Simulated assay, not measured.
Amino acid sequence: MRKSEDVVIEAIKHVVDTSYRISGEHATHTEDIISKQAVMKEVHSLEIPALIPFVKKKRQVKVLYINADEDHVSLQFNNKREI
């Protein structure tokens, strides 16, 4: 079955809030529906660019504080522990 671009766009808009099946039903203004698998394939075929944050200058700190719970601290020297 062929789908027009406006039907695919409507299906993708509905997928944000609903399931594949429901978005396929609401994508067309007629009695026709798009299968949930067809909607899934359209969503998975989207190419979304990764956003890379721009950092002007990295900060250098004098002291770095690290919080660790007792599980991590007790396992820190587990292989060197002498009993």
Rank of each mutant, 00 (worst) to 15 (best):
Y65W: 14
I52D: 00
Q37V: 10
G24Y: 09
I52F: 05
E82N: 14
T28E: 03
Y65E: 12
L75R: 12
K41C: 08
R81S: 07
Y65G: 15
I66F: 01
R2H: 05
E5F: 09
R21Q: 07
I52Y: 01
I66K: 04
Q76R: 15
T18L: 14
E42Q: 09
D6T: 05
S4P: 02
A50F: 14
K13I: 11
I12V: 11
K56N: 15
V63K: 11
S45V: 00
N67V: 11
V16D: 08
V73I: 13
D71T: 14
L64D: 12
S74V: 01
N67Y: 15
P53T: 00
T18P: 02
M40R: 13
T28C: 05
V15G: 01
I9M: 02
R21Y: 01
I9H: 08
L51W: 11
K57D: 12
N78P: 04
I12H: 11
D69L: 02
R59I: 14
D6G: 01
Q76L: 13
P49R: 10
D71A: 13
D6A: 03
E42Y: 14
F54S: 08
E5Q: 09
S23N: 10
A11F: 03
V39P: 03
R2W: 00
I22L: 14
E47C: 03
S74T: 03
V73K: 02
A27V: 03
V16Y: 13
Q37G: 06
M40L: 06
K13N: 11
T18S: 12
K62R: 04
K3S: 09
L75I: 06
V8C: 00
H26K: 04
P53C: 00
L64E: 08
G24Q: 10
D69W: 10
V61A: 15
E5V: 08
K58Q: 12
A38N: 03
A68S: 10
M40V: 02
E31Y: 09
L46A: 11
Q60F: 15
I12D: 06
S4M: 01
I66T: 06
P49T: 03
A27I: 04
I83K: 07
E10Q: 02
A50S: 11
T18F: 15
M1Y: 13
